[in-house]
Amino acid sequence: MLEFDGLHKSFGDVRVLEGVGFTVAPGSMFGFCGSNGAGKTTTMRIAMGLVRPDAGEVRWQGRPLDQATRVRIGYMPEERGLYPKMKVGEQITYFARLHGLDAAAAARASDEWVERLGLAARRGDQVEKLSLGNQQRVQLAAALVSRPEVLILDEPFSGLDPVGVDSLADALLAQVREGVPVVFSSHQLDLVERLCDSVGILARGRMVATGTVEELRRREAGRLLRVVVPDAPSGWAGTLPGVRVVSESAGDTLLDLTGGGDDQAVLAAGLRTGRVTHFAWQQPTLVELFREAVATPTPQEVAA
């Protein structure tokens, strides 16, 4: 398990993290979402030892991370960074060596990743001569070359074209299949929804929601029911007990049942008006969940 536990961090008077914690299981992908400035980068930098937390720690396999164990983590910082004048192959070899591979193993691993990421033809070129997309691949190779046990990637998909996104996604899924826990932050929620086993939403320095996308949906799903009754008169559901009408237009009605309303009573009332063409719990997209979670402090957040 990769555990982020109770991280607190202030920069001067600005409290950036106020108790961030989540867990990533081996062989699973964790999507780390949050608005700009929510503290995602700070959280990841704490894991990499680049920022010292005021409280809390990050553990891998039950032991707090330190410099010796961090060499087993593959990291991609938000601000991409490579030596511009160093050759592609040598650069990847260098990072492999910094992560503890000996010269021969590092050279082998570098060759392998250069090959796998389609950079073989550019092996001897200086990094600055590569296109941005290819530089991004070198960056990924630098993170993966040492066969890391854990991957922590800050906005790995930003700046990639759709083809680049797909090939990076494939590379990450391959790592997950090998049992590596992968944490990545992203603003592309559709991507997070598609790739991640679990999701964490960070807002105002706290985790406002964590769990699988399904779990988050279910939590929200208990509340909104969408019923489409084309022949119903306006206000048809207004009198049902425990039901609040969120919106209604030409029979397309969104109902909030958190007050204890009975969904079957709603269906019966709908049928009394004529045809029911749609009756389902609203499946919120991650974007909606995200908006909801980030917009207002939830009760559980206040409790936390």
Binding site: L50, Q67, R70, I73, Y75, G81, Y83
Partner: peptide, 17 residues
């Protein structure tokens, strides 16, 4: 400065002091 400007320093400091 090259290491700072290219931001490679963050990657380096993840492996060394």
């Amino acid at each position: 400065v090259e290491e700072k400007a290219s931001r490679v320093v963050e990657l380096l400091l993840a492996t060394m002091r």
